[in-house]
Design a protein around this nucleic acid. Sequence first.
DNA 1: TGTGTCGTTAACCAAATGGTTAAACATTTT
DNA 2: AAAATGTTTAACCATTTGGTTAACGACACA
Lengths: 202, 202
Amino acid sequence: MQTTNTTEQQIIEAARKIFMHRGLTGARMQDIADEAGINKAMLHYYYRSKDKLFDIVLTEAVDQMLSRLNAVFSGDLGLEDKIRSAVDNYISGISENPYLPLFVLNEINQNPGRIATRFLSAPNFPNILGFAQQLMAGMEKGTLRRVDPVQLMISIISMCIFPFVARPLLQAVFTVDDPGFLKFMEDRKAFVTEFVLSALRP
Amino acid sequence: MQTTNTTEQQIIEAARKIFMHRGLTGARMQDIADEAGINKAMLHYYYRSKDKLFDIVLTEAVDQMLSRLNAVFSGDLGLEDKIRSAVDNYISGISENPYLPLFVLNEINQNPGRIATRFLSAPNFPNILGFAQQLMAGMEKGTLRRVDPVQLMISIISMCIFPFVARPLLQAVFTVDDPGFLKFMEDRKAFVTEFVLSALRP
DNA sequence: TGTGTCGTTAACCAAATGGTTAAACATTTT
DNA sequence: AAAATGTTTAACCATTTGGTTAACGACACA
């Protein structure tokens, strides 16, 4: 995400932008070169092939996605604060990069094999258990309704990410314009938090 | 969705399959012809261009998506039963066609303008208001916690659809295999229903 | 100053791809 | 049965696209 202007990085930035918007098959090497303001041959000089370049962008994006996901469920806060800050951070984070989720989801579905490799790099899914145990504890004590922790986690993630992924469809169905959508997502932070906490009350 | 074997329909079926899996830019006319077991020229004979053929498939898919969405919130049931059957039907429906949501979401994001046209056909989003009013009534009476109806509706949709869209990622993160995922979605029907109803208790 | 390395470009290439055509084949019409 | 109409195919075409190449220029360093 740095903005140094060495050619190498200009290329990655351009590739990120083009691939994110158009996907692997939709992106043209020439578009990336144009976006970076350089000759097409440079792309191959630095990154051999379209696939190699794409791999870099996708890996980076998956990591970003996973680390965000990870951030949601880690930390030392109590459950309530943790959920509150998780939802808040997640929605804010994606707002800054709204194409990221659909890009990752789509490309991974297109080639699920690719994800296997990605998991070897970076310490990805550690704190999930922590959150689960925190939940279990509350449920034992009786302060929380009994729910499947995985179902809950996926529900929280769903409620945060899905609206971004379905944005044009939702805006059309509920006749919302762009500013309206942003406000909607801002309001959504509080809604999801209260919704989840309320659903967890025994 | 019929299985008549006129060439015209064989083509549509093949196109549906290929476009759904690979998207507009990823799909090759030759692949569609092969899938249909006919000569490539037939595609153009019946449907002029790739774009025209794609439009048909996408329109059909969007309609399917919207009518499903619509079915969720219509009907004469009481709120609790409505939510229960909605979640149930939605998850079952998508299970039969798991690629549909990501396909629609992705292609609409790729070309949001396209959706405008789609909305002219078919009576799409009528009963949304009905559900909203049903909610408002309950909130007035005090039998339901006060929530924004749109936020709620989108949350229900999110929880039903998102897991399918993010399937490979979720299976990797939570280390779930294919049968495990199907069981997960089956269990999810009850989870989401109870989760929502629980969240709505005042 | 000359030589070698690295970065950059224009021109080029082969394969892939959407689309066309002309002729063969089948079916219906008269 | 022959003419007309509709369906199907192999061969072809123009363009696009990922990738290569050969030459040029800049900078270091001997």
